[in-house]
């Protein structure tokens, strides 16, 4: 097991190096150099331009610049934003809890709805319920989620007036930000009703962001269930006289979960990409919205840093899924 763990850990190195190469070349592929970019439209005189190039280390060969960049990355130095002049890592970390909170809630929603729906659809194959779940999940999978978010706002916020349109907390409350997770911070504060407000702000974005993972989880659970229900051990369990619920929930589901867990892990990337759209629609002050704004402001260090951190996160989540997979299914440890 330990050997398996370290082998997988070594595997992620090429991917990580590749991503750093990608983010490093990002800033060099843009027309004009970093000095001109920082100077913006005002322009800069040639002498100052040359001086700044030396100051920023841009006169060195590319590989030296790359190693300098990598060295910084490992020390947590991702450069400073052109716009706010703050370190990128600091900016990212202040915004990340908002994205993490939203993604977690979206994933909980997707699992809570998708898993039971997939199980029931698999068990009751060919029924109206099955067809409905499959139809709905294919629709969810095909959904342009930015439009889905607009529709949800149109219906629940504008038409019914049930939920707020945007943001994380009503402006009526003033909360000390400790953890960055609004649900926790509001619970710890003394403001009555603040938690309820934070929760109501979370509902629509979570549903919108969770829609595609929900559809994928439901489809995967169903097909995995169908596969497992055909197995001999399920027939044995039935023949032993176990109740149908026990057969499905204990004997079948445990084995059916293996591919489902992988799919859930792979949805992390989908969630982080979806967060760009969802956060834009709901004015959610998270990482996705920040990256989009950085692109619009041509704040290249921020784009570079943001992409690097998100890609690294995804690589590590995939590593975690792989290891978890090895724990659940011992066969995998030895075959790779």
């Amino acid at each position: 097991m330990i050997q398996f763990f370290f082998r997988r850990l070594l595997d992620i190195f090429p991917a990580f190096i590749g991503v750093t190469l990608l983010t490093f070349s990002l800033i060099h592929l843009i027309p004009g150099d970093a000095v001109e970019l920082r100077a913006g439209e005002r322009g800069i005189d040639p002498a100052r331009h040359a001086a700044m190039k030396v100051e920023m280390g841009l006169d060195k060969p590319l590989y030296v610049q790359y190693f300098k960049y990598i060295g910084g990355v490992f020390k947590g130095d991702l450069g400073r934003s052109f716009v706010t002049k703050k370190p990128i890592l600091e900016e990212f970390l202040t915004l990340f809890p908002a994205t993490l909170e939203l993604s977690t809630c979206a994933m909980i929603f997707a699992i809570l709805v998708g898993l039971p729906a997939g199980i029931i659809a698999g068990v009751k194959r060919g029924t109206v319920f099955d067809h409905t779940v499959m139809g709905a999940s294919l629709t969810g999978y095909s959904m342009p989620i930015f439009w889905w978010g607009l529709l949800m706002i149109l219906f629940f916020s504008v038409h019914l007036g049930w939920t707020p349109v945007s943001g994380r907390l009503s402006a009526l409350f003033w909360i000390d930000v400790d953890t960055g997770f609004m649900l926790i911070d509001t619970l710890r504060s003394d403001e009555p009703g603040a938690f309820k407000s934070a929760l109501s702000h979370l509902i629509l974005p979570s549903i919108v962001l969770g829609t595609i993972p929900l559809a994928v989880i439901a489809r995967m659970t169903r097909s995995s269930m169908l596969e497992v229900l055909k197995e001999d051990y399920v027939r044995t369990a039935k023949a032993k006289g176990l109740t149908p619920n026990r057969v499905i929930l204990v004997h079948a589901l445990r084995n059916a979960m293996i591919p489902v867990i992988t799919v859930i892990g792979l949805q992390t990337g989908v969630l982080l990409a979806g967060a760009i759209l969802t956060e834009t629609i709901f004015a959610w002050p998270g990482v996705g919205k920040w990256i989009l704004e950085s692109i619009n402001r041509r704040d290249y260090p921020a784009i570079q840093g943001g992409i690097l951190i998100i890609a690294t996160l995804i690589i590590f989540v995939n590593l975690g899924v792989d290891i978890l997979y090895g724990i659940i299914n011992p066969r995998i440890r030895y075959t790779r």
Partner: peptide, 22 residues
């Protein structure tokens, strides 16, 4: 294949945005 792995490590929309940013 390693190059493809790197492309896959990034969420598609994020990578597309990065390319458009360039």
């Amino acid at each position: 294949m390693r190059l493809m792995d790197i492309i896959l490590a990034l969420p598609s929309l994020l990578l597309a945005l990065a390319i458009v940013a360039i």
